[in-house]
Design a binder for these strands. Structure first.
Lengths: 191, 191
DNA sequence: TCACTGATTAGTACCAGGTGCTAAGATAAG
DNA sequence: CTTATCTTAGCACCTGGTACTAATCAGTGA
């Protein structure tokens, strides 16, 4: 990793990147990494407007904590945009580096599924919802940095069974679609 | 919340609970909350074997950090046990805390899908393989600490198209099954 | 050569939120 | 009264910083 004689701005860009993907480094460690003094690192962070380690860690923790708190939040892959319980829902997923196959920069299939599945499950107004079955089709590959909008709509409801239709699009063109059968479970024991 | 004249053990139980569901409290804040001194809180934490705020927050952050990495970042979800390219493959996934729905301790559906999908894609002898479609069925819920064995088998192969049958079991009983249609992509551009 | 500039480094005082240790009350029970 | 349990207090020390001042070093132009 970065250790050579870098210019100030090169170093700063590297620091920005490295802290972006691993916020756990202390100034000390960065200083050793780039063979500069701790003070220099502090100036760099100040210039880049990056808070201290504890703050960074805390933000990360609060983020995931917030998700956990919001009942179904953690369970959702992507950001919930709209939600009408038992009717329809929309979520947005921006494809980041970790989501793609390293070679092709194409999103892993199961993430599109996960977005759809978690949305389908989240939109059910019930303490617990479980997927029963799903038929899905991948229409076009999705690449890094693209924004996937996933729309879910309840097509049929019979008792505790919900048939949900999912369509995911990027720039208004379909990339993924599927039908999910979801079971709403109340307090009764799961099968 | 708790503020009355509690016995030591009552207070400790409350502290344990409160920190369990909200790890962000400092000793100071807890001391005010229970109207005891900071030192008392420290003793309580020591007795309960609860680390300091920063440590708690850090653990939380590392946890969620690891989770994001592992679910999105890995090429294969689960551990590859056996692999015969273009023929069959087996992977094992042990259900950990991060994989389950917080309330029911049941694995999230898309993780079973992810295990199956990543296995199906991995077993194709090609620089790039993409999922075309999938039909899956969830037969029984899978709980925390259970070990999911996923078996994939190529049923049909026509040119670059592979039909793969997946069966996932826990203790030899089926929990998930599906058919995946996977496309092997060579160097040619993806559609 | 001198002066100036930008980048870096050094040093100081201070902070939160602790640990680890010793010692001193407070209170109830035998 | 003595003893044991619980609680509080005080102190030195720690990490990973902030905020600020001052010194150093290399290169550049005049």
């Amino acid at each position: 990793m970065g250790a050579k004689c870098l210019t100030k701005s090169e170093r700063r860009q590297e620091i920005k990147k490295i802290l972006d993907e691993n916020p756990f480094f202390t100034d000390e460690e960065l200083a050793q990494l780039y063979k500069v003094s701790v003070q220099t690192i502090r100036l760099d962070r100040a210039a880049l407007d990056i808070p201290e380690v504890r703050e960074r860690i805390k933000l990360l923790a609060e983020h995931s904590y917030g998700e956990v708190k919001s009942i179904t939040g953690l369970e959702i892959i992507g950001d919930l945009i709209e939600l009408k319980l038992n009717e329809s829902a929309i979520s947005l997923l921006t494809v980041s580096e970790e989501m793609v196959l390293s070679k092709a920069k194409v999103i892993r299939g199961h993430l599109l599924f996960a977005q759809a599945n978690s949305l389908a499950v989240a939109m059910i107004d019930s303490p617990l919802a479980l997927t029963g079955s799903a038929n899905v089709k991948y229409i076009a590959p999705v690449s890094l940095d693209e924004r996937v909008i996933c729309r879910a709509k309840v097509m049929k409801k019979r008792g505790e069974k919900f048939l949900i239709k999912i369509v995911s699009t990027v720039n208004n063109s379909e990339v993924f679609r599927g039908n999910f059968l979801v079971f709403a479970k109340g307090k009764e024991e799961v099968l």
